[in-house]
């Protein structure tokens, strides 16, 4: 019989651990406090620990649900599955004549191009433009949230929906190679890296879209500019073959296409990972600054 004493000990230990954690978080707060000038006010404000993360999560949840409350999510998912499906079966799969799903990641109707042209601009156009137009941003910002939490919350919501969409497209390889059909052994390595690449590229694209959405109050403008820029970043990769020297190098450096191709071949290129992450961070920072600029206009 586990005695009550033992139980009590357990509880005690847990308490101690909790206390320890609190101390730690206090310490981290203390650091930021010290940076304040010595003329601090009598009252010192401390946020509940973890409030920032919870806020991001709350905003992400709301935004994610908003995608499904409006028709955006359904339109995006259905349209993508339809186009990719048509492309994959009628123009890709049977022509390649191999046990491969590489057509999902390559060509006119493939996932990266659909993401650039349609999905990411659609998912991000409303993000900040619509909030600014309708004034809801005022209520959101005047809640005890940081601007950065708003941006991140919206970013993760869009990224989440992109992930859901990508998961949905997994039915093609699964249907062809696992169940109900078995067209042969599929090499899952390149498929996995391709999806990883898509997610990274998606993140960068979402950040670009949010940046443009934060620059305007018109979601249509945000949509077209984002689509144009993402398409450009993809397609300039196609002319790399014809351009040599430093210009060609520069193009292949910025192009999403040249960055993505290694992923589709089963290669995780760290330079590409860092490139996509940098684009994400830079654009999110720009969106953050733009949101903050309302204060000074």
């Amino acid at each position: 019989m586990a005695t009550t004493e033992e139980l009590r000990d357990d509880v005690h230990e847990a308490d101690e651990a909790a206390e320890h954690e609190e101390e730690e978080s206090d310490e981290s707060n203390g650091k930021s406090k010290k940076e304040l000038p010595a003329t601090a006010q009598p009252k010192v404000f401390e946020r509940k620990p973890g409030a920032g993360l919870r806020n991001i999560l709350t905003i992400t949840r709301r935004e994610f649900k908003a995608y499904f409350d409006s028709i955006v999510a359904y339109v995006v998912v259905c349209l993508t599955l339809l186009i990719v499906g048509v492309w994959f079966f009628f123009f890709g799969f049977w022509q390649v004549d191999r046990a491969s799903v590489s057509r999902l990641f390559d060509g006119v109707g493939s996932l990266p191009i659909l993401l650039s042209f349609l999905v990411l601009p659609l998912l991000t156009m409303r993000a900040l433009a619509e909030e600014k137009r309708s004034g809801t941003i005022e209520l959101l910002i005047t809640m005890p949230v940081k601007d950065s939490e708003v941006i991140l919350g919206k970013f993760f919501a869009a990224l989440g929906l992109t992930a859901v969409l990508l998961l949905c497209t997994l039915i093609y390889p699964i249907a062809m190679f696992m169940w109900p059909w078995h067209m042969g052994p599929l090499d899952w390595g390149p498929v996995t890296t391709s999806y990883l690449g898509l997610l990274l590229m998606g993140g960068a694209g979402i950040a670009v879209g949010m940046m443009f959405s934060s620059f305007t109050e018109n979601q249509i403008v945000a949509f077209f500019i984002t689509a144009a820029v993402l398409a450009l970043l993809w397609f300039i990769g196609s002319i790399v073959e014809f351009v040599h020297g430093p210009v060609g190098d520069a193009i292949s450096f910025v192009s999403f296409q040249t960055r993505f191709v290694p992923f589709s071949r089963g290669l995780i290129d760290t330079r590409a990972v860092i490139y996509f992450l940098s684009i994400t961070i830079i654009c999110l920072l720009a969106a953050f600054r733009s949101l903050e600029s309302r204060k000074w206009s």
Partner: peptide, 19 residues
């Protein structure tokens, strides 16, 4: 953040998330 935590604010025309 401390300021916002201590107040409740209703902007003009109550801009809410309609959905």
């Amino acid at each position: 953040l401390a300021v916002r935590e201590s107040l409740g604010y209703l902007p003009q025309r109550a801009p809410l998330y309609l959905e």
